[in-house]
């Protein structure tokens, strides 16, 4: 935000129009093969296979109930917490199976952070919201180190200037957009490799949304980001790779610019252009 003019900057890095060659050059961070999910007897995902590129934003789009959020939750094993949910297939993070029984799920979720649809800060101070993760993972050995983690996380989340004088105030007292950036700071604080975002802007106004999108664009330099969004325009704006889900299947995936100018699949085209499928 430009404080003089009140204008929001939304920088478009040249990478946004990256050619297929550029995207394919990126190393793959996450690999999913034949991922299935059953909720009891109901199958929610039918064999999803996709590569998630490193240091890029991948967006999942599709109508409600298409399985995009279900798949996102598989990536940090959030479905484990749902009773009756059964996950099949493999998901590898840097070649390591995240469903390996010997893997520590708590540690996994530190490596793969998550930001939710509604900002959900803890009923604690702004400082403690960010310090919570590093504290339970024992990432800071001293108060000074913890201060450093909290400050740098708030800076990376673009919130520092707005909250530096009121770190002791409750996080719930911030505006919706600020709360969401606080949640992003909280996710960043444990130095994750991947950040999953489940409709992070759906509860925000357009300006707060633009600030978050600008933040996502900055964060992708250091993190692998996967975002589920109902806003097609948002997927077009922030992501380099887009995957379209429908009825529990991955219908089409590819460069965002290709998907939004010339999708190969008719179902994708009907969905993104708002046609009756």
């Amino acid at each position: 935000m430009d404080t003089l003019t009140g204008n929001t900057r939304v920088t478009q890095s040249p990478d946004v129009t990256s050619t297929p060659v550029e995207l394919s050059k990126r190393t793959t961070r996450l690999t999913a093969r034949d991922v299935t999910v059953h909720y009891g007897s109901k199958q929610a995902l039918h064999g999803i296979s996709i590569d998630i590129p490193d240091r890029a934003v991948t967006s999942f789009i599709g109508p409600s109930g298409c399985g995009k959020s279900t798949f996102l939750r598989c990536i940090n094993r959030m479905n484990d917490t749902i009773e009756g949910a059964k996950v099949g297939g493999t998901i590898k993070l840097d070649g390591e199976d995240i469903y390996d029984p010997s893997l520590d799920v708590v540690e996994l979720r530190a490596r793969i952070g998550m930001v939710f649809q509604k900002p959900n800060p803890f009923p604690k101070s702004i400082y403690d919201n960010v310090a919570y993760g590093p504290r339970i993972h024992g990432l800071a050995r001293s108060r000074a180190e913890m201060d450093e983690i909290v400050h740098s996380s708030l800076r990376k989340a673009g919130l520092w200037q707005e909250v530096k004088d009121r770190l002791a105030e409750p996080g719930t007292g911030l505006s919706g957009g600020q709360q969401q950036r606080l949640c992003i700071a909280r996710a960043i604080a444990v130095s994750p490799e991947v950040i999953l975002m489940d409709e992070p802007c759906s509860a925000l106004d357009p300006i707060a949304t633009a600030i978050i999108e600008e933040l996502i664009d900055e964060l992708r330099e250091n993190y692998t980001i996967v975002i589920v969004t109902h806003s097609m325009q948002q997927a077009a704006r922030v992501s380099q790779k887009t995957a379209f889900f429908h009825l529990g299947n991955l219908v089409e995936e590819g460069n965002t610019s290709d998907i939004f100018t010339n999708p190969r699949n008719k179902q994708t085209q009907d969905y993104i252009t708002g046609r009756i499928g």
């Binding site: 325009q233 077009a236 939004f260 100018t261 010339n262 999708p263 085209q269 252009t273």
Partner: peptide, 9 residues
């Protein structure tokens, strides 16, 4: 309308 894909073309 922010047309995309075939509509944009």
């Amino acid at each position: 309308r922010q047309p995309i894909a075939v509509d944009l073309r």
